[in-house]
Design a protein around this nucleic acid. Structure first.
Lengths: 237, 237
DNA sequence: ATCTTTGACATATGATCACAAATATGATCG
DNA sequence: CGATCATATTTGTGATCATATGTCAAAGAT
């Protein structure tokens, strides 16, 4: 620890809910940054830089990076350094397929278990999401989309599924901002699907919810695939 | 590094194919031990003990443990220590559901892509597995079962799916030995399913392969569930 | 002119130490 | 004799340092 903790316990019971280690703070921060697409694909993550930026030693950062590699959010290079993985058409298609299977299952489970309050909460999140869409704030749009989806998946109540979904979102995070930007130009289609999901939940129609989710995923992936193909043609730009 | 490497490069080009760090050796070893069920559920993993057992410092071990927590192979306690997660009926059912979805998808993809050589390789693995069954060697049975399944999943060629499957197997590893022991008393049913899978691959029948896999998974899970319920009745053991 | 080698630099890795947190142990008091 | 608090022990965490390794560029050889 650094200068902050040199004084002997001057602070009150400040944020001491449970195990609040430096490591967990660093890891949470990095995950958040990755999921919201604040690191571009191909960006190399240097332990020393991140440690300095977060005001810690290298130790917590290096362990966090190792954890992120295990979660497939980063890839380990032969250099022994780590970077944000690049996206190819094959990987995008692979991610789409797996997201449909895993998040589709979560959506079905959620449909079985959702209470009226759960559905109301989703509706509220959706409302904020629509607002963000209309205001054109990309960051907020991305964040609200994530909040809506994870609220849905939390309802599923599968502690096995959730970490996989988080891993998937860590992997698509770096290109999600891009997707949102494209979407933004075409009007907020994402919340259309969200509305269909909520409607399906209301009717306890598993298939409807799964299909709305599938459309949500596929639509954004199709746009990204097109964008990726375009960028591949002219590698310089 | 320890005494082994104190002499200056006396060994030839011994296993120096690529980045062979102490960390990767430690991690590989721990994964193997977990997947083959060599740690019982609830067993606490102590950094110092493992470090001494492997002849390294604590550093590689602690990073490996953190990685294993990220892969859900271990669970972090509020103590900040880590242990092998215990198994409950709910978690077992959750794992079953997710395995069916994820490994089922992998099986379908494999069916699409399998070449004649791939299928022959699977047949060969199955033959060794049957041999192990008949000889009653639990360790070998577990290992060959794992080899067969992962050979199948490798054919699927999904670099997104494979880490998830590995995570799942790390989670069921600690109780798999138990499952194999139960199976052993009832004759090697697992290889029956394997035979059905190979047959389905031959006919490129996705549904058949998926169903054989589902039966394989469900049968072992049903036995484990029964065993778990029985142990729950008399908690003393 | 091109290929190979050497060496400097950047960076991660592994070991070690001081500290902090949690738990277990034992003493003291009611 | 039992409860509670102080203390000791155990174990993980964060920081620091020496070393190994990979990368890149410059110099030398073919």
């Amino acid at each position: 620890m650094n200068s902050e903790t040199n004084r002997p316990t001057l602070m009150p019971d400040f944020e001491r809910v449970s195990t609040e280690t430096v490591q967990s703070r660093v890891h949470g921060r990095l995950r958040e940054l990755l999921m919201l697409g604040r690191f571009a694909p191909g960006h190399p993550l240097k332990i020393a830089d991140l440690a300095e930026a977060m005001g810690t030693s290298a130790q917590p950062v290096r362990e966090s990076i190792r954890q992120l590699v295990a979660e497939r959010a980063l890839e380990a290079l032969p250099n022994r350094s780590a970077r944000v993985p690049g996206m190819t058409l094959e990987r995008l298609e692979d991610l789409r397929r797996v997201r449909l299977a895993i998040e589709g299952l979560a959506a079905e489970l959620a449909t079985e278990r959702a209470t009226a309050e759960d559905i109301d909460a989703l509706r509220a999140l959706m409302a904020v999401g629509i607002e963000a869409d209309n205001s054109g704030a990309i960051d907020t749009t991305v964040q609200m989309n994530k909040r809506f989806h994870f609220a849905l998946y939390a309802i599923a109540g599968s502690s096995t599924l959730l970490p996989f979904i988080e891993s998937l979102w860590l992997q698509i995070g770096p290109i999600m901002r891009q997707s949102a930007a494209i979407f933004d130009g075409r009007g907020g289609r994402g919340n259309e699907m969200h509305a269909r999901m909520v409607e399906g939940l209301d009717r306890r129609d598993k298939e409807a919810v799964r299909e709305a989710l599938a459309d949500d995923i596929s639509r954004s992936f199709n746009l990204l695939a097109k964008d990726l193909a375009r960028t591949a043609e002219r590698p310089a730009g």
